[in-house]
């Protein structure tokens, strides 16, 4: 098994994909991380202490895991959902009662959404009370605040999509709150809903925001957030760096 794996890693195809080559020296291990677009966001080395549960409670990782679950289940739910009036409600009911594993995916999406909001808040409290937001990590805290807002916007836009009474009145109330913004509140509400009432335009706008625009922005901010952990000296452990 081991020799098969090393033979595979020596093939021309493998070498064309992973240029770092075989070997278990520190240089090779560093190159493996640095030359991989996904791994290079993370640092080559990590302090053993940073992996302990008590340091982070893994809250950031768990937030990201919820995001991944939400993307996967969300894309699958999109296959049965038409963002039109009144088809959206019927599609949501079909997902619950007709589509195989539909109710599982819908509920998983819903629970993961709730979990992500809770986890992101918990992550921020943990960072705040441990003082991990302090320089040189102050910019990454700001990126984190943006990610919190994106999480809440994603939650809010997803709320309308079932197109039931709860969704309709929640968005009616929410969009009226936005119209309290001084001077341009009514204009923001008009642009957000694509009209004066919560109707077909609002459903379509919230759908596009929820499924395309906000996730794309969140993905960019997530990439910066993870990359900055490395650039700011790794996860904050609270320890003095060992010399």
């Amino acid at each position: 098994m081991n020799s098969l794996y090393s033979r595979l890693r020596g093939t021309a195809v493998w070498r064309s994909v992973f240029r770092s080559g075989t070997g278990d020296t520190n240089l090779h291990r560093s190159l493996t991380v640095q030359q991989n677009i996904f791994l290079h966001l993370a640092s080559v080395k990590i302090r053993r202490r940073a992996l302990e549960f008590g340091v982070t409670w893994y809250l950031g990782t768990l937030s990201m895991a919820s995001f991944v679950i939400l993307v996967v289940t969300g894309v699958l739910l999109m296959l049965y959902y038409h963002p039109s009036v009144p088809q959206a409600y019927a599609d949501m009911k079909d997902l619950q009662f007709v589509v195989s594993a539909g109710v599982f995916l819908r509920n998983l999406h819903r629970w993961a959404a709730h979990a992500m909001v809770v986890l992101v808040f918990a992550h921020m409290f943990k960072v705040f009370y441990r003082g991990a937001y302090r320089p040189p990590r102050e910019f990454n805290w700001v990126v984190g605040v943006m990610l919190l807002l994106l999480t809440l916007f994603l939650s809010y836009t997803g709320y309308l999509l079932p197109w039931d009474q709860l969704a309709f009145w929640a968005i009616t109330v929410g969009s009226n709150i936005i119209s309290a913004v001084p001077a341009m509140g009514a204009k923001i509400r008009f642009l957000m809903l694509g009209g004066h009432t919560v109707n077909a335009n609002a459903l379509l706008r919230f759908y596009v925001l929820h499924c395309v625009i906000l996730p794309l922005i969140a993905a960019v901010f997530l990439a910066v957030h993870f990359w900055r952990i490395r650039k700011d000296g790794g996860l904050y452990t609270g320890d003095k760096p060992r010399e």
């Binding site: 699958l76 296959l79 049965y80 079909d94 007709v98 589509v99 195989s100 594993a101 539909g102 599982f104 995916l105």
Partner: peptide, 11 residues
């Protein structure tokens, strides 16, 4: 298995 079942519409 679940993915295949999900992707095959029942109605």
């Amino acid at each position: 298995v679940f993915g295949y079942e999900f992707l095959s519409p029942n109605a």
